[in-house]
């Protein structure tokens, strides 16, 4: 249940492109044709699905304050969180390069269709964003981190697929000349983002957690105040 929720949440509610505006540069630059958009989107899903869990492990066992305690009690006080940016970036860049080499070796046809996008991905801020969100939202288990990575990737894929399809069709429309290309893409993306804001009203995992905690303390409190949790749930959320 937790997985399904996080999965859909990361696709629709926290959509990388429309809610957090990450990965915009490649989204705008590589969305002229559906086929190339699909290639890049697939590569993003793939890389996110690998790097988010990997960085989760790094974060849990190396970077977090006290994470080194598995090495022995004397290491428990180390706090390496200032290295998170560098470590995450290094993992991502290494993984991208590694994937490139492996794909080239074992499946040249896939490499030909995907290959040119892989270097682009290392500089796609959606990838780093995925890892940083995973860290700051304190995702609890490795499995959830994987789900989150895949979900975010699919969200990004959907977004670039949609805009590429629209851009292919819009070539037949009579757009004012100065707006053609980049200009109209910006405006359409803005309108799509407004559309995606309506997903914000859906119940999310965060509320669920609040309710669970509330219940726990309410047992001790004797008087249970259900209305507060419902209030949070009823407040329509709009993307920040």
């Amino acid at each position: 249940m937790e997985h399904i929720e996080l999965f859909f949440k990361s696709i629709f509610i926290d959509n990388m492109v429309f809610a957090t505006f990450l990965g915009m540069c490649s989204y705008l630059a590589v969305s002229k044709k559906v086929t190339t958009a699909v290639g890049l989107g697939a590569a993003v899903i793939f890389v996110l699905a690998i790097t988010v869990p990997l960085n989760w492990l790094l974060d849990q066992f190396i970077l977090q304050p006290g994470a080194l305690s598995w090495l022995g009690a004397e290491y428990a006080d180390y706090d390496l969180s200032f290295l998170s940016f560098i470590m995450f970036i290094a993992t991502i860049a290494t993984m991208v390069q590694l994937v490139e080499i492996i794909v080239e070796k074992f499946s040249p046809s896939l490499y030909n269709s995907l290959g040119i996008f892989l270097p682009l991905i290392a500089v796609n801020c959606a990838i780093l964003g995925g890892s940083l969100f995973m860290q700051s939202r304190e995702i609890a288990t490795l499995g959830l981190a994987t789900t989150y990575g895949i979900g975010s990737g699919i969200g990004w894929f959907l977004a670039i697929l949609a805009i590429a399809a629209i851009r292919e069709k819009i070539r037949y429309s009579n757009v004012p000349a100065p707006l053609r290309g980049l200009g109209i893409t910006f405006i359409i993306t803005g309108l799509m983002a407004i559309g995606f804001m309506s997903f914000g009203g859906m119940l999310t995992g965060g509320d669920e957690e609040g309710e669970a905690l509330e219940d726990k303390s309410a047992q001790i409190e004797t008087v249970q105040d259900k209305s507060t949790t419902n209030e949070i749930a009823n407040n329509t959320k709009v993307i920040d």
């Binding site: 707006l179 290309g181 910006f186 993306t189 803005g190 983002a193 993307i239």
Partner: peptide
């Protein structure tokens, strides 16, 4: 809200490219 930033940038592009026709795609 962030979507409006996209639309404002879109309008800036519009203004810029109507002043300098060489940039039109």
């Amino acid at each position: 809200l962030s979507p409006m930033a996209l639309i404002v940038v879109g309008i800036i592009i519009w203004v810029q490219r109507s002043r300098n026709k060489a940039l039109i795609e």
